Simulated scan of single mutants.
Amino acid sequence: MSTETDDTLFTDVDLVWEHRKNRIFLAIIFAASLFGVVALALLLLDVASDFYVGLTEYNISLVDFFTRDGSRREELSGFRGAIVASIMLMIVTAILSFFVGVGSAIYLEEYAPDNHITRLIEANLANLAGVPSIVYGLLALAAFVNGIGMGPILLAGAIALGLLVMPIIIVSSQEALRAVPDGVRNGSYATGATEWQTIRRVVLPAAMPGIMTGTILGLARAIGETAPLIMVGALFVNRMPYGPLDRFSAMPTQIYNWAAEPSQHFIHLAAVGIVVLLAFVFAMNAAAIYVRNKYETEV
């Protein structure tokens, strides 16, 4: 009886059409992937072409580019102030977001009860990780720049970027903490360790590769964000910031200003700036891979 039923089921299925649908689906997926790769390759090729033309035909000196601050005169413009501002932004952003993000993840995973409120908070955190960056810029503009009169200073930009990356750090830290086996915790409890000692000495070291990777990748996203910085007023400053209370112009906003200029010289300066920014992003991604492998080796 069972054999007759199976034969009937397979007889009703058109295997030729099923195989054809599978091939069509694979072709659509491949075309979608190829479209993204081709678009990225064309963008990189355009930037590389403008970078080469800027160095050869417009005589942009890399030494001057890295040792001069921004200027309205194209022949005197440099990227030093923007680089320093971006580095300071990342340091302050990391300080503001890392400890709060990891602490929140520890509470949600290790201490908070598993109820509707906790699940609602986690769902909202996952949604916040996908909110457009300009929303965080508007929030920082309303609450800090105008709300408390902070003004368009570097600290306001760091707060905007900290709000941007904090959900990413919390979610990635939660996943890293969840990946630690319960047997590791139970073994620590069996030796007489308290819950905090178990978290600090056992769980956190085991989860640190994932936590550090998520943090560095979040900062790598933040270093290239333009919209939040434009919202807080980081448009053009022709000097290098010396502290978090100074006005600033980071690498993305400096590139944005140059790209908006009608002069072709500024356009090629923007291409050189894009290459420098990409180098920072690639370096931060490489650092994330190195830190993850280092911690996994040690642990």
Rank of each mutant, 00 (worst) to 15 (best):
E4I: 12
T5H: 08
T8C: 10
F10Y: 15
T11L: 09
H19E: 15
K21A: 14
R23K: 15
F30V: 11
A31F: 13
L34H: 07
G36Q: 05
G36S: 11
V37T: 13
V37Y: 06
L40K: 09
L45V: 10
V47P: 09
S49C: 03
V53F: 14
I60A: 00
S61L: 00
S71F: 00
R73A: 10
L76H: 09
S77G: 03
S77I: 07
A82Q: 04
A82V: 01
V84H: 02
A85N: 03
S86T: 13
I87L: 14
V92L: 09
V92C: 06
T93N: 00
A94P: 05
I95W: 03
G101Q: 00
G103F: 11
G103N: 13
S104V: 07
S104T: 15
A105P: 06
I106L: 14
L108N: 06
L108G: 06
N115C: 03
I117R: 10
R119Q: 15
L120A: 13
I121D: 05
E122S: 12
E122M: 12
A123F: 10
L125Y: 03
A126G: 11
L128P: 04
A129D: 07
V135Q: 06
G137V: 07
L139M: 11
L139N: 02
A140S: 14
A142K: 13
F144E: 09
I148Q: 05
I148G: 09
G149I: 08
M150H: 02
L154F: 01
L155A: 14
A160Y: 12
G162I: 01
M166A: 11
S172L: 07
S172C: 05
S172A: 14
Q174W: 00
L177F: 14
R178G: 02
R178E: 09
V184I: 13
R185D: 05
G187M: 07
S188T: 08
T191N: 04
G192S: 10
W196V: 13
R200N: 09
R201Y: 15
V202P: 02
A206D: 05
A207I: 08
I211H: 02
I211N: 01
M212A: 13
M212G: 11
T213V: 07
I216T: 15
G218A: 08
R221N: 06
E225R: 09
P228Q: 05
I230E: 06
M231I: 07
A234N: 15
N238T: 14
R239E: 11
Y242Q: 11
R247M: 14
T253R: 09
Q254K: 09
N257P: 00
N257H: 10
W258R: 02
P262N: 08
S263E: 08
H265N: 06
H265V: 12
H265G: 10
V272A: 11
G273E: 00
G273I: 00
V275G: 05
L278P: 08
A279F: 13
F280C: 15
A286S: 15
A286V: 09
A288L: 08
A288K: 06
V299R: 12
